[in-house]
Design a protein around this nucleic acid. Structure first.
Lengths: 222, 222
DNA sequence: CCAAAAGTGTTCGTACTACACCCATGC
DNA sequence: GCATGGGTGTAGTACGAACACTTTTGG
């Protein structure tokens, strides 16, 4: 079966930048390409948009198929469409980004991916296509949005300590924060609450565990 | 000549939301469609992406062809791609927005546009496709960006008064500003300077004219 | 008792807000 | 001389930034 048009049409894909914080470092998920072009090199998860699905639906589907992720914060990032960015044909990529807790993640490789793996953002391998550029745009957007929204809470598991949360912020915006000021600020937002439980790990005072009061919501602040 | 693919491909267009401030009101440019679908109704300027041009180049070309505008601030807004948004075939639209001074504009209608016309944003006609939604997203983005960048200066002609500039800000962000505070703020940014000339219009004290020190630049502030 | 991370208050500076009157001009 | 928009200063507040020591635990 073939499809014929009077004018040339580009192919359209979605590619997804999946951020998490692992071992106190900002990481992202890449898949090893199982087919040409760029077979064997690392790339963002993504794929062609089907005729019956919206762009958001496509991104959600790819996220599920290639990374085993569902029900995460997903936002359209930017659309990349320079001619020549894919050697096969003209491909326009609508990029998305997403944030997820790293705990309890099952990495599932899809049909056209041999392997999925987390990489610290400062130790990325050589990337296929223009995915390096997409990642740079995503990282800039993430850093900006951390400053004026509550997007950062989307990195957190169900229960977490304030120190963990502070680490997430420090990694995503790329600078250190004062502990007292950070705690005053995040508590003043009234978005998280104590669980009453404590979390002990190592030879030091245990930390209070917190939970997000309204886990789905991402608010604009400031 | 026809073009054949193994898988179905969507068409890709760019559509452009062109803002200006005319008669102390936020306006945008629409064109009357000269062909079906939606022949005779008003729509955003835009058109199909050619195979050899990037998305930015396409937007620039449409801006020139359909609105006679060049050398303006142009930024990618969002990509709209729900199935069914165009009755002909699957069309994915990469939306852009732009800001321009209203003075000295030549409105030129292109081949598929009978007519181009400015509309106050609170008096828009019925719009073709999902262009109403695109405009709403653009207006929200404009309002947000006015608050944390110097994008607002892109509305200004070569020389302008502070009152004119304040009106632009008030229109774009949708609320009134205190005159003294606004002037203190805009002058503290050191982005505009007095020309030394005065501008007299009507029975009142003439206003000092200002110019933008670095007209091209749009900076993030705050 | 020592090491390690958790937890906690105060001070200072700055930037935003609110607010009212005189000035220069045209008619 | 009056109507019209242009132009100016000050005081109060709120928010972010800087900064150091005590607490609780495990080993």
């Amino acid at each position: 079966m073939t499809y014929t048009y009077e004018y040339p049409h580009p192919a359209v894909t979605t590619d997804i930048v999946i951020f998490t914080v692992r071992d106190a470092k900002l990481n992202l998920l890449l898949i090893k390409r199982g087919m040409d072009p760029h077979k064997g090199s690392w790339a963002l998860p993504g794929g062609f948009v089907r005729m019956e699905e919206s762009l958001d639906e496509c991104a959600k589907r790819e996220l599920e198929e290639e990374a085993g992720l569902s029900d995460v914060y997903l936002e359209q990032l930017y659309t990349f469409g320079k001619p020549g960015r894919d050697p096969r044909e003209r491909v326009i990529s609508v990029a998305y980004y997403t944030l997820t807790p790293s705990e309890g993640m099952e990495l599932a490789a899809g049909t056209d991916a041999e392997e999925a793996q987390w990489f610290p953002i400062d130790k990325l391998p050589q990337l296929a296509f223009d995915h390096q550029e997409i990642i740079e745009v995503a990282q800039a957007r993430l850093a900006a949005k951390m400053e004026y929204s509550t997007i950062g809470l989307q990195f957190m598991p169900e229960e977490f300590t304030l120190s963990q949360l502070q680490t997430v912020y420090e990694q995503a915006i790329g600078r250190e924060l004062d502990k007292r000021n950070f705690r005053k600020w995040i508590l003043s937002l009234k978005l998280i609450e104590e669980t009453g439980k404590k979390f002990s790990r190592g030879a030091h005072r245990p930390a209070m565990l917190y939970r997000i009061i309204d886990p789905k919501s991402v608010k604009i602040i400031r």
